[in-house]
Design a protein around this nucleic acid. Structure first.
Lengths: 134, 134
DNA sequence: TTCACACCTTACGTTAACGTCAACGTAAGT
DNA sequence: ACTTACGTTGACGTTAACGTAAGGTGTGAA
């Protein structure tokens, strides 16, 4: 286990975000770093959480969603009903992600082929103009 | 060519959005429907534009981006420098989309496999508890 | 004619996700 | 002692993408 710790600017420069953003995530309950006095000290686990958040963002998830997902990695294994609820949440989330994956693949492929066609039309129009300009 | 036309509520119910949303897209310059008096009348082309916008949204594009993309399908083929600029924009956009595709696929697969692991850990924890409860 | 719709415009309200000061503390180097 | 660098807490500002009334128009059915 990596015991390394990070300052807030360490993480900010690592992930190319601002310190304000990191504090904002804490405000929203997605991060809870240790403190040395009032200075925040981030663990390797915090770093991973941040990574999860940013990945969620790239996928279009809200911070609330990412908060949910983070909690799936740090279950408070109090009792078995709790865990069973968590398992259900994980499965539901996986369902959502798979559906999203399908949809995005379709969308992106559609868009790519349409861009190809648009380019083709442009090239043809260009050739037409050059022929007439002779 | 389909000469069918649509009312604003037609489109709204078709795409499961509100009329406010459609008017908003017009405000932002993404749609320019015909008018009968003050009532908007949407053509098949308008319908397609709306489809493009919503697909863009699913992919995380902003309305500005979608506006750009829509204009790629309706080039004002004034002169060849214009068209060449458009072709460049199309190619750049395709580059962006391909990169996004790569990243999102990676993100989604990572997330799926991590959810699998999280579920596995949960199931194990559950089994542990049941064994001890006997 | 009066009612019910479907449409319109204008305009203020809302939410998420930060940005941007201001004002302050602290520790290290010169 | 002074500057520089990095950290802190408020707290108000901003942008995108709509939501939500409030009030007016036009048209067909009862």
């Amino acid at each position: 286990m990596s015991n390394r710790s990070y300052s807030i600017t360490d993480l900010a420069t690592d992930f190319d975000i601002t310190t304000r953003t990191i504090r904002f995530y804490e405000e929203k309950g997605l991060l809870n770093p240790e403190r040395n006095g009032q200075t925040r000290i981030y663990s390797a686990a915090d770093r991973i959480k941040l990574k999860l958040i940013l990945r969620g963002k790239r996928l279009g998830l809200s911070l609330e969603d990412s908060k949910d997902i983070i909690e799936m990695y740090h279950p408070e294994h109090d009792n078995s009903p709790q865990i069973m609820k968590l398992i259900d949440k994980i499965r539901e989330r996986r369902r959502l992600i798979k559906e999203q994956l399908r949809q995005q693949l379709q969308d992106l492929n559609d868009m790519l082929s349409e861009l190809d066609q648009a380019e083709e039309r442009c090239v043809e129009a260009l050739e037409d103009m050059q022929r007439k300009a002779q």
